[in-house]
Simulated scan of single mutants.
Amino acid sequence: MNQAHLRKFDLTGRVALVTGASRGLGAAMSRGLAQAGAEVILNGRDAATLEAQAEKLRAEGLACRVSAFDVTDGKAVEAAVAGLGPIDILLHNAGNQHRAPIEETTEAGWHSVIDTHLTALWRLSRLVVPGMKQRRRGKVIATGSLASDLGRATITPYASAKGGLKMFIRALAVELGPWNIQCNAIGPGWFDTEMNKPLLDNPEWLAMVQRRCPAGRYAQPEEIAGTAVFLASGASDFVSGQMLFVDGGVTASMS
């Protein structure tokens, strides 16, 4: 690949806001964006945890800053985003889970998951998109899931949120295309993250993953970073409205 092609992946001069950036996939994608040249704004609810993650990036010579706020708190989001300056890349990765049979799913649990994954994406998008329109460029990226397409017992709030997220991204891509703004989602498969620890500790679940996933294993968080860089960069300027699965082949397999 020649240097001109490589420059399409260069994020120098771009500012990326990454929610849920203190650990797991959010931390890995933040590092990837920063390594590609972006200044990354790390978001999460706990300022101390974010600062610890930021120090790791700064120790590598990477540009980042911290903005701690709860993505489900509308007033806090508006106040924080207003003080961040222009955002070129929005990567909404904040997430949570509420595992329970439908009859045991609480209303609070339902709203917590929907608000974190889906309502927050709407809220953040409506705040950063006007600036993107003015500059006639921008990238909106959301972390989806296998559950955006595939159902599983006891996660109806999560599957509903991730399915809605997929269609939100598709609709937004159509709306914002005339302003040269691309909107896409990343669909992680089974990754070795803190949120998945209850599953990782279950031998039956691990055996299922090894059988069901053509790659035969869980993925490590850093394996998602390249996809985030691609979707945030000029290399994806004609890619919009897509859910790009990073799943080791799970969604391609019937087994």
Score class of each variant (00 low, 15 high):
Ala225Arg: 08
Val15Arg: 13
Thr105Pro: 00
Arg137Cys: 10
Thr49Cys: 04
Leu121Glu: 01
Asn196Leu: 08
Cys64Trp: 05
His92Leu: 04
Glu223Asp: 10
Thr105Gln: 15
Met208His: 12
Leu25Trp: 07
Met208Phe: 12
Leu11Ala: 06
Ala27His: 04
Ala228Ile: 14
Leu176Thr: 09
Thr119Trp: 03
Thr106Ile: 15
Asn2His: 13
Ala82Cys: 05
Ala94Asp: 00
Lys56Gly: 11
Asn196His: 06
Val113Glu: 04
Gly163Tyr: 06
Ala161Asp: 11
His111Ala: 13
Asp192Trp: 14
Thr105Trp: 03
Gly144Asp: 04
Leu146His: 07
Asn202Lys: 09
Leu121Phe: 15
Gly83Lys: 13
Arg212Ser: 08
Asn184Trp: 08
Leu231Gly: 05
Val81Arg: 00
Arg136Ala: 14
Val66Arg: 03
Gly144Val: 05
Asn184Phe: 08
Ala80Tyr: 03
Glu107Tyr: 06
Asn93Ser: 11
Lys139Arg: 10
Ala28Gly: 04
Ala185Phe: 06
Met243Phe: 00
Gly189Tyr: 00
Trp205Glu: 08
Ile169Lys: 02
Gly163Pro: 00
Ala159Phe: 04
Ser255Ala: 13
Ala79Cys: 02
Val209Asp: 01
Leu84Cys: 05
Gly95Asp: 04
Leu121His: 06
Leu42Asn: 01
Ala54Pro: 02
Arg99Asp: 13
Glu204Asp: 14
Asn2Thr: 15
Arg152Gly: 03
Leu118Gln: 00
Pro188Trp: 09
Met1Gln: 11
Ala215Lys: 07
Ala48Cys: 00
Glu103Met: 10
Gly83Met: 10
Thr19Ala: 04
Asp201Gln: 13
Thr251Ala: 12
Gln134Met: 10
Ser236Glu: 03
Ile169Phe: 04
Ser125Gly: 12
Gly216Leu: 10
Phe191Met: 02
Ala153Val: 07
Ala153Gly: 02
Met195Lys: 05
Ala147Met: 13
Ile41Gln: 03
